[in-house]
C-alpha cells in the first residue's frame, strides 16, 4: 500500500515564498564577494560569447564551469537543500554540468561561441538578457528588497537560464550535452515557483520551450549535425555562416 503516485505537486511545496527569498538575502549578505565575483565572471563570459576566437571560447567554458560549481555548492548545497530535500537529487546534475563544461574547455577545439544572426542566436541572446538583467530584479516589482536579488552565477534559476542562452549562442556538434541539466533545473524551478504562486514561473517555462524549439530549428537547418570545418574554426562566425 505504499503508493507515492497519489501525491499532488502542491504536496511537495515544503516552504513559503518568504523562506525561499530569504535564502538569497542570506547568501547575498554572507557571500557577497563570491556572489559579485560570479556575476562579473558571467558578464565577462557573456561579453566574450558575442565575440569569436578559440581563446575566448575556452575562457567562457572555464568561467561557466566555475559558476556551476559555485552555484551548486554556494546556493544549492548550503542554502536550498536544507529546506528542499528534492534538491539533493538534482545537485549531482550541477556537478555533472560543471565537469562537462570543464571537459569542453579542455578539448583541443572547444565549442565556438558567437553571434550568428539567426533565430537561435536571438533566443540565446534574449535568454542572456533575461538571466543577467531582468530575472534578478523582477522581485523589485513584486516588492522584494534588492538584497534578495537572484543573481546569475550564484542563484540557480538565472544561472540555468543564462546557460541555456550560452549554449544556444554556441556552435559545435556536442553542445547539446550541456542542455539537459539546465533544462531539467528550469522545469523543476518552474514547477516550484508555480506552486508558490510566483508569476516568474512562466519565464522558466517559456525558456524551456524556446530552447527546445530553437534546438529543433538548428537540427532542422543542419547547424547541430554539421561539424565545424577548420576554416570555420579559424574565421569569425559572421564570415563562415
Amino acid at each position: 500500500m505504499s503508493e507515492w503516485w497519489d501525491y499532488g505537486l502542491a504536496d511537495f511545496l515544503l516552504f513559503s515564498p518568504r523562506v525561499y527569498y530569504r535564502l538569497f538575502e542570506t547568501m547575498n549578505s554572507v557571500w557577497w564577494i563570491a556572489v559579485l565575483a560570479a556575476f562579473v565572471a558571467g558578464l565577462v563570459a557573456a561579453g566574450l560569447a558575442m565575440r569569436h576566437g578559440h581563446r575566448g571560447n575556452r575562457v567562457i567554458l572555464v568561467l561557466l564551469s566555475l559558476i556551476w560549481g559555485w552555484a551548486g555548492y554556494g546556493f544549492l548545497w548550503q542554502y536550498y537543500q536544507p529546506i528542499n530535500w528534492a534538491v539533493a537529487y538534482i545537485l549531482p546534475g550541477f556537478v555533472i554540468e560543471a565537469v562537462l563544461l570543464a571537459v569542453f574547455a579542455a578539448r583541443p577545439l572547444p565549442l565556438r561561441f558567437g553571434w550568428r544572426g539567426d533565430l537561435t542566436s536571438c533566443v540565446g541572446a534574449g535568454l542572456l538578457v533575461v538571466a543577467f538583467v531582468i530575472y534578478p530584479f523582477v522581485g523589485l516589482i513584486e516588492g522584494r528588497d534588492l538584497i534578495q536579488a537572484e543573481l546569475f552565477g550564484s542563484a540557480a534559476d538565472p544561472t540555468a537560464l543564462g546557460t541555456l542562452g550560452f549554449v544556444l549562442m554556441a556552435r559545435g556538434t556536442w553542445r547539446w550535452l550541456l542542455l539537459p541539466v539546465p533544462l531539467i533545473w528550469c522545469v523543476f524551478a518552474s514547477a516550484t515557483l508555480w506552486v508558490m504562486d510566483q508569476q516568474v514561473a512562466y519565464v522558466m517555462f517559456v525558456a524551456v520551450w524556446l530552447t527546445i524549439f530553437s534546438g529543433w530549428l538548428d537540427l532542422k537547418n543542419g547547424v547541430t549535425t554539421r561539424r565545424l570545418t577548420e576554416a570555420e574554426r579559424a574565421t569569425p562566425a559572421s564570415l563562415s555562416d
Binding site: 511545496l13 515544503l14 516552504f15 513559503s16 523562506v19 530569504r22 535564502l23 548550503q78 542554502y79 529546506i83
Partner: peptide, 9 residues
C-alpha cells in the same frame, strides 16, 4: 508543515 521549514536561517 511549511512554517517550520526555514533551513539554517
Amino acid at each position: 508543515w511549511i512554517t517550520f521549514n526555514v533551513g539554517n536561517d
